[in-house]
């Protein structure tokens, strides 16, 4: 049994420092509290004849000093904890994106190259990884204790966390949000590999070219579900002349500002695209009649992710 498992990430090591500091503060306070209580219990027990002196003069100075001291320590801890936390919200731009879908009671992982895994996540070492996560049913929580990270996975949203593993090895993955009877079994492993090993794993023995990557799979769906019928081949957008209807261009959509019919302007992120596919009625785009049908119930969360990957891969500039 191990009482300390070194963190496998840089941020995790810093979190360990914070926890260590918190432990030291706690031990000091506990030593003070227990020490004083024990001391007084012995020294001032009723039977003891020790001279008590005049009753101590009560003064607010004591109160002010220990209140201020407490608050000062607390404030320092707040800043420290907050600083590290803010970093968890800021993935580096070059982070490798991997999609995760939680489902009662398994984890499904989709790599950019189209590789799927269940209850396992293979990642390369020394490279920032960003997980984009959603759930098909209830709230789950993606937790890797060795990385000191954890985040709820909600239905209808994309939540994201990132980390950079520094130690190769296999680490435990848990669901830490009660998600039903099989909650305890919703576990898996995270495998951290060297870059060559990872490349090797990605190709999985299959010769390159045979496996479809996510975007290519998305492209197939784009045709199969009739998206290209209105939005045009390659998502260039539609006009009455080309596709018969006016449909917005999708190339270069991600990260762009989109004006809605309601007058609001939103930034097109993954969730926006997901909402547009599943509940287009709620986000009618300015300048286009809302005629897109809803694909809710017809496309699984994984297929949505593939479509998003495809739309991401489309180069802007080919806009009409």
């Amino acid at each position: 049994m191990n009482f300390y498992v070194p963190s496998a990430t840089v941020d995790g090591r810093e979190i360990d420092f914070l926890i260590l500091a918190l432990s030291l503060v706690s031990c000091a306070v506990l030593a003070l509290v227990f020490g004083l209580i024990l001391l007084y219990m012995v020294r001032y027990r009723a039977e003891s004849g020790v001279y008590r002196g005049a009753p101590g003069r009560k003064t607010w100075r004591f109160e002010i000093s220990w209140t201020v001291a407490t608050l000062a320590v607390f404030f320092a801890l707040f800043i420290w904890g907050g600083d590290l936390y803010v970093r968890l919200f800021q993935p580096p731009a070059d982070a490798l994106q991997i999609y995760v879908v939680g489902k009662q009671w398994m984890w499904k992982v989709e790599h950019q190259g189209g590789q799927h895994e269940i209850n396992a996540l293979h990642i390369p070492i020394n490279r920032p990884i960003q997980l984009v996560m959603t759930s098909e049913d209830v709230i789950h929580d993606f937790s890797v204790p060795a990385f000191r990270i954890k985040h709820d996975v909600l239905p209808g949203r994309y939540e994201s966390i990132w980390f950079e593993a520094k130690t190769p090895g296999t680490f435990e993955l848990f669901c830490t949000q009660l998600c039903g009877v099989g909650h305890y079994s919703m576990t898996g492993e995270v495998v951290v590999m060297s870059q060559p090993d990872f490349e090797n794993w990605l190709s999985g023995g299959a010769p390159a070219g045979e496996r479809e990557d996510l975007a290519a799979a998305g492209k197939e769906l784009f045709t199969a579900h009739g998206c290209s019928g209105c939005h045009g081949e390659g998502g260039v957008g539609g006009t009455p002349a080309t596709t018969g209807v006016n449909a917005p261009a999708l190339a270069g959509l991600l990260g762009r500002s989109v004006k809605l019919q309601s007058g609001a302007t939103v930034t097109a992120d993954e969730k926006f695209i997901r909402d547009c596919i599943l509940t287009p009625d709620k986000t009618p785009i300015a300048g286009y009649p809302q005629i897109m049908p809803s694909f809710s119930g017809q496309i699984s969360e994984e297929k949505v992710l593939r479509l998003i990957a495809y739309i991401k891969s489309l180069k802007s500039g080919s806009r009409t």
Binding site: I19, L22, I37, L77, G81, K150
Partner: peptide, 28 residues
């Protein structure tokens, strides 16, 4: 006296959970 000891321990470990980054690891 038992209360003071146990409550203090409980309260101090609350500080761990209030520190955001530490909470990420320890919560749940």
């Amino acid at each position: 006296i038992g209360f003071i000891g146990l409550f203090t321990t409980g309260g101090l470990t609350g500080l761990f959970l209030a520190a955001l980054a530490a909470d990420v690891h320890l919560t749940q």
